[in-house]
Design a protein around this nucleic acid. Structure first.
Length: 513
RNA sequence: GGCGCCGUGGCCAAGUGGCUAAGGCAGCGGAUUGCAAAUCCGCCAUCACCGGUUCGAAUCCGGUCGGCGCCUCCA
């Protein structure tokens, strides 16, 4: 069992071996908190949350860091526009971001450092770069000298010659057009901090170099982010850190694919809308406002976090995901299979699958020999799931195995006629329970099936449940009297208010759709 | 112009040199059901196109067509 990881730097999958055995440091570039987050911002957190879960399951001690960029041009612009402080904007948008992460089950983040809490660290980092001859002070701005880094451009595969470089008035203070700002001198009315080069604020890239060093050390394992960050952000971070420390900052650079709106409008929340002709712009703007870029909170409320998470994880993390709400609904239909299965198992065993203890380590599971016909199949599928995850966290491929698992369990229940209590054996019930628990064991690695769904059955609301028991009793009586007209009427009427009745071998079940 | 990605069944989506090309959604047929629903069983693709390498390619190479990203703030 070797985990393999695709490294953007080498463009190949490599065997995963942490810098320090048993320990893994992951730094994921988080958001600039100037606007509410959209679904595209969730792709990285969901996949890296999943990666951490998987690595921990495999016995690694993982630290996951996601930074918050709370000082930059866009934040300043937003605060001026709204007439409130930059801190207030950042605070509001950070809260929005955290709320959305929570709803999607992203709860593996260990630290979320903010740029403004690390100004001292940033200033000393810049000073070190100047001392080592990799940066220069130019009239209150400090720039990184890209020509001092022989490896510059290696990550994004480009040479200094074909760089455009930032334009604007900063350009004539640079020695080379590709040099980028480590420290920007303050303009009137902008937030600023004292520094050896005068009042100013950090450049975009330096916070990540400084904060990752503080928390994860000079050399850590995984640095992640969206594909759009490879250049210039990660290229520049890498240049800063490598030049400052003379050791590789990061062992594995991992980048997730970006999300795109339907009808190839460009990425969600991106700027491509305005470049389209009128006709298309109308279509695409509507899509992005109603379905994603606009209200993530509303989207989550409508669909549920688990569905969205599953939707994201169905596609390989390096691929582009085309956003559509239909896609999320389809993912939801697929996910319902598991909710129904867990209820079915609960009816048979009398215990909630959600109350069963979960295996949280791969080793324990592998040592456990599984007796019984069903559990043999389960063991096979389980190892299929794990080997797909081993191969660069192929969540999309691995998911097929949990569907096969569900089918195997349902088939076993059918064949052994376990819904009929008279034909149940303790061994069969045990096998089914353990098999279903294996789905949860694997699901938890993806952040799925972690908590019991609220509306899986009526048990949440005692009054509703007793009323439904009564309704079912009345309907059962009708059926026994062969009064199918009444029985069907009750079922149809319930369906209209969103309650599904299913007649089973030992009575009827109901479910809120 | 430079760098890079993608094109697998109606739709979504794994697989990237060799068992019968995963899985999901939808559909169809069957079992089951009073009828349904759920569940199970079965059916539904030769992998954009052309050429090449190879005993053998969806998987490698070249070309064509089509879609997309980065090079500027962006997860």
């Amino acid at each position: 069992m070797t985990i393999r990881v695709y490294n953007t730097l080498t463009k190949t999958k490599e065997d995963f071996e942490p810098v320090e055995p048993g320990k893994v440091g992951i730094y994921l570039c988080g958001p600039t908190v100037y606007k509410p987050s959209h679904i595209g911002h969730m792709v990285g957190p969901v996949i890296f949350d999943t990666i951490k879960r998987y690595l921990e399951y495999n016995g690694f001690d993982v630290t996951l860091v996601v930074n918050i960029t709370d000082v930059d041009d866009k934040l300043i612009a937003e605060s001026q526009l709204r007439g409130i402080t930059m801190e207030a904007v950042a605070e509001e948008m950070t809260a929005d971001y955290l709320k959305n992460l929570g709803l999607l089950g992203v709860n593996q983040i260990d630290e979320m450092p903010k740029a403004t809490d690390n100004i001292d660290e940033i200033i000393s980092f810049v000073s070190e770069l100047i001392e080592k001859g990799h940066a220069y002070d130019s009239d209150g701005d400090v720039f990184f000298d890209v020509t001092s880094d022989p490896d510059y451009g290696e990550l994004s595969n480009r040479s200094v010659h074909d760089q455009q470089g930032e334009g604007g008035d900063a350009a004539n203070r640079k020695r080379h057009p590709s040099d980028f700002a480590l420290w920007k001198s303050a303009r009137d009315g902008e937030p600023s901090w004292e520094s050896p080069w005068g009042n100013g604020r950090p450049g975009w890239h330096i916070e990540c170099s400084a904060m990752s060093r503080r928390i994860l050390g000079r050399s850590f394992d995984i640095h992640g982010g969206g594909l759009d960050l490879v250049f210039p952000h990660h290229e520049n971070e890498r240049a800063q850190s490598n030049c400052c420390h003379d050791i590789p900052m990061v062992k594995y650079w991992m980048h997730n694919g970006l999300m795109r709106a339907e009808s190839s409008a460009g990425k969600v929340g991106g700027r491509s809308d305005r470049e389209l002709d009128d006709n298309q712009a109308t279509v695409d703007t509507k899509i992005s406002r109603s379905k994603g870029a606009g209200g993530l909170a509303e989207l989550i409320e409508r669909q549920g976090g688990e569905r969205i998470r599953f939707f994201l994880l169905r596609t390989h993390y390096r691929s582009t995901i085309v956003f559509s709400e239909e896609g999320i609904e389809e993912a939801g239909s697929a996910l319902d299979t598991f909710a129904r299965l867990f209820e079915r198992v609960e009816r048979i065993s009398g215990e909630s699958v959600y109350d069963q203890p979960l295996i949280t380590s791969r080793e324990i599971g592998e040592l456990d020999d599984q007796p019984g016909e069903l559990l043999k199949e389960v063991a096979n599928l389980r190892s299929g799931f794990l080997s797909k995850m081993d191969d660069d966290f192929n969540t999309g491929g691995a998911i097929s195995d949990i569907f096969d698992l569900a089918r195997a369990i349902n088939r076993f229940i059918d064949q052994q006629n376990l819904e009929d209590s008279s034909s149940r054996s303790n061994d069969d019930v045990l096998q089914v329970t353990r098999a279903a628990t294996t789905i949860r064991e694997l699901g938890q690695l993806l952040g799925l099936f972690v908590t019991r769904p609220q509306q899986a059955s009526g048990a949440d609301d005692a009054l509703l449940d007793s009323i439904m028991q009564l309704v079912i009793k009345l309907r059962t009586r009708s059926r026994e009297n062969k009064d199918y007209e009444t029985a069907d009427f009750i079922r149809d009427q319930l369906a209209e208010i969103g309650i599904t009745i299913e007649d089973g071998k030992e009575g009827s079940n109901w479910r809120i759709e």
